[in-house]
Design a protein around this nucleic acid. Structure first.
Length: 888
RNA sequence: GCCCGGAUGGCGAAAUCGGCAGACGCAGCGGACUUAAAAUCCGCAGACCUGAAAGGGUCAUGGGGGUUCAAGUCCCCCUCCGGGCACCA
């Protein structure tokens, strides 16, 4: 693509500033509308400008990456902020002498392309590629320094064939599998969603659309194989925000506990002895009541509190539990109750009120034996038990669990206290009555047979061991994380490379037949089901094994597969033999700094961590985590609200660029707030940054001709007072920027610092232009000012750099070393307080001794007045900081 | 309910280690330039009280308590706002 300014991208039309009457009218004014497209064209002629070098270059590597965008066709200001942060960092690291990899690409598969196709009757591919071209123009117009030769577009066969290749490897390793299961279905997208893509019971893309549950055959990736490692390695990710780590921890949801089997007993009619309340009396199982082996031998429950099992007074099963289905098959009345309960759940979900659904349930009339006590407990069905967590069955301990307590109170189920706070007895010897439900674990057991008197955690271990010994349970760990369902019943995605053959069953597409190309000329309709299934040429294949007619898999992959490994492809983007060269990837990985929105804290960031671990186990990479450091920038809001079409508060980057230029737009995005916080976009503030850049320009073009006379000269050995002051400010600013780029990234204060420096310079403009600052000093001032601007306003910096007579790219110039002695103050202002109240300020050399501070401070009339008639109790003398007299 | 953030002038914010609260910018006010306006440049600017003025004083970082010579910053309690999770056994 040529760097010529494209007519579809608006160019600045209004000059941001006029001519200063104080300065000469003949001065060229700052006109980004002219200056920026000129440089854009120059840069387009230099494909190496932002190119990463080979590992052999000898420089330390630095991989800085912003999350790749979906090519919607339009950048929004949130993107601008994201890329301005990354670009500032990349430019800084170039100047610091690193071999920087700073690539960009397109997350180009996905549903919007199909929707657009329906609406405009354009093929998804054309729509997507046109959007990419438009957005790339916008990025170039912003002056973002990407290595475009490494551009990755996920919807192209040269990329997605490797998705298919990975899929075959995963299938081979048993990490990709097919199963029939209940899945999330978004009626709006007309496709299945992964658990991570369901937010509050709604689709992540359609926040108003309730996700339905459907039973479907689906492909899954075994993310749970890595549950434990994904959790453990979070501890190592110290360069990630704590917030993201916590969210992932909760999402993985590891719980330690135990599985315990309860034995199902014969129908209650066969039990002779019963108590008045209908409970069977304690039975000797071997003599009076045989376990009902045939009906359903055992109900396995998962519990984190096996220590409370002596207090279990019922079992609660999810309505979908297979045993419930079985009971219902024999009992029409029960079947109806189950249906009603499920119906109620369904409508609650549709109302979006699943969370506050009242606990509800009923007894099945059947019983099971508690393996520790032999006591029969009734088997219930309850709507608060989830089939897809643990075993879909829980032992109910109402005295020691909030939910069980609520349920038991509603239905009058028995409560049995088996845990007491320590100490068990009050001072008067009375046994303590805990407030129910009592759920503390730092407690002691009672009424628990041989375990009575034990602490909870000790009992947990002993009981799990006992259960294992006797074959009815074991210690166990359960995760909330589930396998990743990747099948999508959509067209615009990576075809899953599998074939269904009547003779041979599931047959993977042989590797040498990859890629399975996505057919391009297809009619997009709104019909249900996978669109590819309606393309006979695609769906009908011959079986690679037996050669007979077979059926191709017509679902496509979740687009999150594409983004799980795209950053590896950047390291070796044109490789046609492998997804990437391992050696090259090992050089660049892990990513040194990954930057993006927090909305991907779980989705993309957990999938890509999984993918990296999987690739490591395939021997493709060495690293176990994709990114060393992660930075999540704040949202861009306007008038306190998230930007949205419905609120009509969207800010268009094109409009900003048209009015003020790219440098101003970028710089404002960094100046208005620290990058991790939300930013309220205020156009008046943008105008302020524009004025600042005009001032820089006006000053520089006048100062540079004078400065050039001192080019190549060393700084003089001693400075005039004015020179000293300006050089000091310069080095203070260099120090500030150097620090901030080391990690805190408060670019707002960096820019404020540059503004202070420029204020200082323009404040002395007439003296400087009158030659009161020697050329070599002025040269140092202007040159370093330009170097500091580079990260924030690359167009203006490039222009001034040229004026300064430099031919080479500014990026290749070394970052100025910070000189603390030049930055040091000669005189500091020290506040003098009396009893913590400011009374005077004294000016002293920074290294003044305490005695000197004391003498100076006590000479101040206001200090003397404040001490008048008081007894001096204490003196706090902090050299360089303050003086405080404590007096009574 | 639980877990993270956050709250500082009219506004966006700064104060990196406990040491002059409000840097820098926006909006505002005054002045210069201009026939005038815009633009630009120079200056003022937390609130309240007091003073003709110079100045002086008091109060101020969501609220309440504490530690300290000294708290926006550390500790305890509370309120509000934003985000995440939410019957996970």
């Amino acid at each position: 693509m040529q760097g010529k300014a494209d007519s579809t991208v608006p160019q600045p039309t209004l000059p941001a500033t006029g001519r200063g009457s104080r300065t000469d009218a003949h001065l060229p004014r700052y006109n980004p509308a002219e200056l920026e497209p000129k440089w854009q064209a120059v840069w387009a002629e230099q494909p190496d400008l932002y190119a990463a070098q080979q590992p052999e270059c000898g420089k330390p590597k630095y991989y800085v990456l912003e999350m790749l965008p979906y090519p919607s066709g339009q950048l929004h200001v949130g993107h601008v902020r994201n890329y301005a942060i990354g670009d500032a960092l990349a430019r800084h690291m170039w100047m610091r002498g690193y071999n920087v990899l700073h690539p960009m690409g397109w997350d180009a598969f996905g549903l919007p392309a199909e929707n657009a196709a329906l609406k405009n009757n354009t093929p998804p591919r054309d729509w997507t590629l046109a959007n990419i071209a438009a957005m790339r123009r916008q990025m170039e117009r912003l002056g973002l320094g990407y290595d475009w030769r490494r551009e990755v577009t996920t919807c192209l066969p040269e990329y997605y064939r490797w998705n298919q290749w990975f899929f075959l490897k995963l299938y081979d390793k048993g990490l990709a599998y097919r199963k029939n299961s209940k899945v999330n279905w978004c009626p709006e997208c007309a496709t299945v969603l992964a658990n991570e893509q369901v937010v509050n019971g709604c689709c992540w893309r359609h926040e108003e659309t309730i996700v339905e549950q459907r039973e479907l055959e689906q492909w899954f990736l075994r993310t749970t194989r890595y549950s434990d490692e994904l959790l453990r390695d979070l501890e190592k990710l110290e360069g990630w925000p704590e917030k993201v780590r916590t969210m992932q921890r909760n999402w993985i949801g590891r719980s330690e506990g135990a599985l315990v089997d309860f034995t199902v007993l014969l129908p209650v009619e066969n039990i002779a002895a019963r108590r008045d309340d209908g409970y069977p009396v304690k039975l000797n199982l071997t003599e009076t009541m045989l376990p009902d082996e045939e009906a359903a031998p055992r109900i396995s429950v998962f519990t984190t509190r096996i220590d409370t099992i002596y207090g279990a007074t019922s079992l609660q099963l999810a309505p979908e539990h297979p045993l419930v289905t079985r009971f219902a098959a024999e009992d029409g009345e029960l079947a109806k109750k189950v249906r009603d309960l499920l119906q109620e759940q369904k409508s609650a979900r549709e109302m979006g009120e699943l969370g506050n659904l009242e606990k509800n349930g009923f007894a099945t009339g059947r019983f099971a034996a508690n393996p520790f006590t032999g006591e029969p407990v009734p088997i219930w069905v309850a709507n608060y038990v989830l089939m897809d967590y643990g075993t879909g069955a829980v032992m109910s301990v109402p005295a020691h669990d909030e939910r069980d307590y609520e349920f038991a109170r509603k239905y009058g189920l028995e409560l049995k206290i088996v845990v007491l706070p320590r100490p068990v007895n009050d001072s008067d010897g009375q046994q303590k009555e805990p407030l129910l439900p009592y759920t503390e674990e730092d407690s002691l057991l009672i009424n628990s047979g041989e375990y009575t008197g034990m602490g909870c955690s000790e009992a947990q271990q002993k009981m799990a061991a006992y259960a294992q010994e006797h074959g009815f349970g074991r210690a166990s760990v359960t995760y909330r994380l589930k396998d990743w369902g990747i099948s999508r019943q959509r067209y615009w995605g990576t075809p899953i490379p599998m074939i269904y053959c009547q003779t041979d069953g599931l047959v993977p597409v042989p590797e040498d037949q990859l890629p399975v190309l996505l057919p391009e000329k297809i009619e997009i309709t709104q019909e249900g089901g996978s669109p590819l299934a309606r393309v006979p040429d695609f769906a009908r294949v011959t079986c690679p094994k037996c050669g007979r007619i077979a059926r191709r898999e017509t679902d496509t992959m979740d687009t999150f597969v594409d983004s799980s490994w795209y950053f590896y492809r950047y390291t070796d983007p044109r490789n046609s033999e492998a997804p990437f060269d391992s050696k090259t990837a090992d050089y660049w990985f892990p990513i040194d700094q990954y930057i993006g929105g927090v909305e991907h804290a779980i989705l993309h960031l957990i999938y890509s961590r999984f993918w990296t671990k999987m690739m490591r186990d395939l021997g493709l990479v060495q690293n176990g985590e994709p990114a060393e450091r992660l930075f999540t920038q704040g949202m861009v809001i306007r008038n306190g609200a998230k930007m949205s079409k419905s609120k009509g508060n969207i800010v268009s980057p094109d409009e900003m660029i048209a009015r003020y230029g790219a440098d101003t737009t970028r710089m404002y995005a960094l100046f208005a707030a620290p990058p991790d916080r939300d930013l309220d976009w205020q156009e008046d503030g943008v105008a302020g940054v524009s004025r600042f850049l005009s001032r820089v320009h006006r000053f520089a073009i006048q100062a540079i001709p004078l400065a050039l006379e001192g080019r190549g000269e060393r700084l003089p050995a001693s400075f005039s007072a004015l020179e000293r002051r300006l050089i000091r400010k310069l080095h203070q600013t260099i120090g500030r920027l150097t620090d901030e780029f080391e990690g805190r990234w408060h670019f707002n204060t960096c820019i404020a610092g540059i503004m202070e420096l420029v204020n200082e310079l323009t404040g002395e403009e007439s003296a400087i232009l009158a030659g009161e600052v020697r050329p070599s000093v002025l040269y140092a001032l202007t040159r370093n000012l330009i170097l500091m601007l580079e990260a924030f306003a690359p167009y203006l910096a490039a222009e001034l750099w040229l004026q300064l007579g430099e031919e080479d790219a500014l990026l290749r110039a070394p970052w100025p070393p910070y000189d603390a002695s030049l930055a040091a103050e000669d005189i500091v202002q020290i506040p003098v307080q009396v009893n913590g109240k400011l009374r005077a300020v004294i000016s002293v050399p920074p290294a003044s001794e305490q005695e000197h501070l004391q003498t100076m401070a006590l000479q101040e009339p206001k200090v003397q007045a404040a001490l008048e008639g008081k007894q001096l109790v204490k003196m706090i003398l902090v050299p360089g900081k303050l003086v405080n007299f404590v007096a009574r």
